[in-house]
Design a protein around this nucleic acid. Structure first.
Lengths: 227, 227
DNA sequence: GTCTATATCCCGATAGAC
DNA sequence: GTCTATCGGGATATAGAC
């Protein structure tokens, strides 16, 4: 929301936020790799050097966009899974939300997954993605220790799942398969393999959700011998 | 193989081929988006304008690299599937080969799938990928009309599958799921999610192959209602 | 087929004034 | 916080000589 100062020039109360909005626009048109801070400045009518008052360099700016992307996902899409009590359905819903997010906010999805940011250099990004990762690992862990086919008689003592951290064994295999399926569907959607409109998004999301259920159903086939 | 002329300067008998080799090098270091014809020329010791004697522009050059990539895949990896008689195993082998190719020839895989070439503008690329596509659709079609769980009593009359072109119904759903799984595993491999060395490639390829078998096994869950 | 030379354009980033 | 001015670098692409 630019406002005009006494001198007739445009000034932005929040150039930082305006830059992120404009970046989303540009990335939507040209892709992440076609984005430049210079063009964003041009569109906002500010000097090409103005962004450097808020961000050290281009990478740090993209990291800020990535954080924005995760916050949006966590707020708007993650809650969708709470409609489902069963772990398998929750997982399918999570995958569906993931693909929907890719379709509805393609530029943000691109920044997160296609830009190739070095996350180790941007801890803010890692922190922002944590809610999503936690939701995911929680469900997968539940599924592989408590699934309908795991064969635990009622009341049997179970080793408690670790509270956080990496998955192991069957859970890791299932998680990897579903992660790849979700990512693959999202990428094919963005490449136009499913068409262009909103139906394409739902088609891709639906297929991804079904693939998730199929993988859960046949998860015994995913198991690998210990290396 | 550069040779030296009488004047002491380097000349290339086949600059075209040399450029493609060098492009593979550069893309391996910087990714497709970090590639430029200018740098390739520099490394070969030729003028930055030399490539334009062989290629109209950067995109046409990348299309040539893509054709090279498909030819290599079709020759070196596609034949691997012939070791397996059963359709499901053939499909898993194809997916395994696909991921192995991504790992063994990452730069070429990137050009094909990440560079975002407009294939409609480059018919040579479409022609080069045809053998791969045909092999894929053939197997999927066989699986969804002749699979062990399709429940056709022996001798029942079946509608003959179309000889080429797009898949429909169950076959299309299965094909989409497997395509996404293969692509997803390959991309996660390239992003380093499985680690870096040759073991990472085999891990990803193995997981992709298992996911393929799992999807085939539960393919009834992939079925969508007609739109 | 390759060279030199050049034109044009865009980008990232810095310094210092307002 | 934003501006102007500017440096340095790299890319694409063309024209014309050898």
């Amino acid at each position: 929301m630019p406002r005009t100062g006494r001198d007739g020039r445009y000034h932005h109360g929040d150039l930082r936020a305006a830059l992120i909005d404009t970046a989303v626009e540009i990335i939507g048109e040209r892709g992440v790799r076609g984005f430049s801070l210079a063009e964003a400045s041009r569109r906002l009518g500010v000097a090409s050097s103005a962004p450097y008052a808020h961000f050290a360099d281009r990478d740090e700016f993209l990291a800020a966009v990535a954080v924005h992307a995760y916050e949006l996902f966590n707020k708007q899409f993650l809650p969708e899974i709470n409609e489902f009590p069963e772990p398998a359905d929750r997982l399918a819903a999570l995958v569906r939300s993931y693909v929907r997010f890719a379709g509805a906010h393609r530029p943000l999805f691109e920044v997160i997954f296609v830009a190739g940011l070095d996350k180790t250099r941007h801890p803010e990004v890692k922190a922002a993605e944590k809610p999503f990762e936690d939701a995911y690992t929680d469900i997968v862990r539940t599924l592989s220790t408590d699934g309908p086919e795991s064969g635990h008689p009622t009341g049997e003592a179970r080793t408690p799942a670790p509270e956080s951290g990496h998955l192991t064994g069957e859970a890791a295999d299932l998680a990897a398969a579903i992660e790849a399926a979700a990512y693959g569907h999202a990428m094919l959607l963005l490449e136009g393999d499913y068409g262009r409109g909103g139906e394409a998004v739902e088609l891709a999301a639906d297929r991804a959700a079904r693939a998730t259920l199929a993988l859960v159903e046949s998860r015994h086939l995913l198991r690998r011998r210990a290396p």
